[in-house]
């Protein structure tokens, strides 16, 4: 055994296994992040009218990109809008996912497999396509929904302006995301040992009581997980508001933090301040995610 371990091939094996992952990670993850960090400390300075060759030079900018990123009121306002959107979206989506998972897990369910597939299907529709379709439905003069409401003598809500916009955006994400979260919760429901239910039924518990007292506490870890994923997805919301933007006057180009990064980099051509803003957003996301995980861990430790 000892002689085996000293053979060089044996010592090299782990590195051989690791190297593809390490190389890919370094090339396509660490390197771009490093480059973004580098860009965030640089800026462009122009000589004279800025025309002709060599009029622009890249210079060291220190922390000035960060200072202007943090002091820009639009970044803060965008974060506020994103949080409000998340406050609508996450409870609605996870609530619906949990309810559907519990319903599918009841003993007398019919057409379970078909229903699971039907609920999951919207998740397979790309976010841009979903937003385009919903955008069509939100425009009163072309939407069949508004047509029916109009026929019934009712006025439809204005979903493209003011607070309606938050509902409109959250609705797209609920429609697209409920199925995925439902599957995660449902899978962990199936892993609950059947003896627990038997014992509860012998004690005279109803299906509702089983759901509230056994199933929900048992799937709490998956609820935490889905909440965690939803939170990160919310902070990174981009394609839905970007797709609805051309349809409405009420959504500006800095509606969400990532939209501001996009505008700075690809519309206004300032990759340096866009890089600084991305770093700020990434740091804020990390802090929020880890403090959430820490909070959850502390509470579960205290409970045990």
């Amino acid at each position: 055994m000892a002689s085996h371990q000293s053979r060089p091939s044996r010592r090299l094996a782990p590195y051989a296994f690791l190297s593809p992952a390490v190389v890919l990670f370094a090339l396509f993850f660490a390197l771009p992040i490093g480059y973004a960090l580098y860009l965030s400390f640089r800026s462009v300075q122009v000589k004279g009218l800025g025309l002709g060759s060599h009029a622009r030079t890249e210079v060291w900018a220190g922390l000035s990109n960060y200072a202007s990123a943090i002091s820009d009121p639009e970044l803060l306002a965008g974060s506020g809008r994103t949080l409000l959107y998340g406050a609508l979206l996450v409870p609605a989506m996870l609530g619906a996912a949990l309810l559907l998972a519990l319903l599918l897990d009841t003993p007398r369910v019919r057409l379970g497999a078909l229903s699971r597939l039907a609920i999951f299907l919207p998740y397979a529709v790309p976010g841009i396509v979903a937003s385009l379709l919903w955008g069509f439905l939100y425009l009163p003069t072309v939407s069949p929904g508004y047509f029916l409401l109009d026929r019934a003598g009712l006025g439809g809500p204005d979903l493209l302006h003011g607070n309606g916009l938050f509902v409109a955006l959250a609705n797209i994400a609920v429609w697209g995301g409920t199925g995925f979260n439902m599957i995660v919760i449902y899978t962990s429901l199936r892993a609950v040992p059947a003896e627990l239910y038997e014992a509860a039924r012998l004690d005279g518990a109803s299906e509702l009581q089983i759901a509230l007292r056994i199933k929900i506490p048992m799937v709490l870890p998956s609820l935490v997980l889905t909440f965690f994923f939803s939170m990160i997805a919310t902070l990174q919301v981009f394609s839905e508001p970007m797709t609805l933007k051309p349809l409405t006057n009420s959504m500006n180009s800095t509606w969400s933090p990532l939209m501001k990064v996009y505008r700075d980099a690809f519309v206004q051509g300032d990759i340096h301040s866009a890089a600084a803003t991305s770093v700020v957003i990434a740091a804020a996301t990390l802090v929020l995610s880890f403090s959430f995980l820490k909070l959850v861990n502390n509470r579960s430790d205290g409970g045990s």
């Binding site: 409405t248 006057n249 009420s250 500006n252 180009s253 505008r263 206004q268």
Partner: peptide, 13 residues
Amino acid sequence: YSTFKDAFGKAAQ
């Protein structure tokens, strides 16, 4: 141009 869209979008609405 990008400021136009934001500022005039708000004013028009």
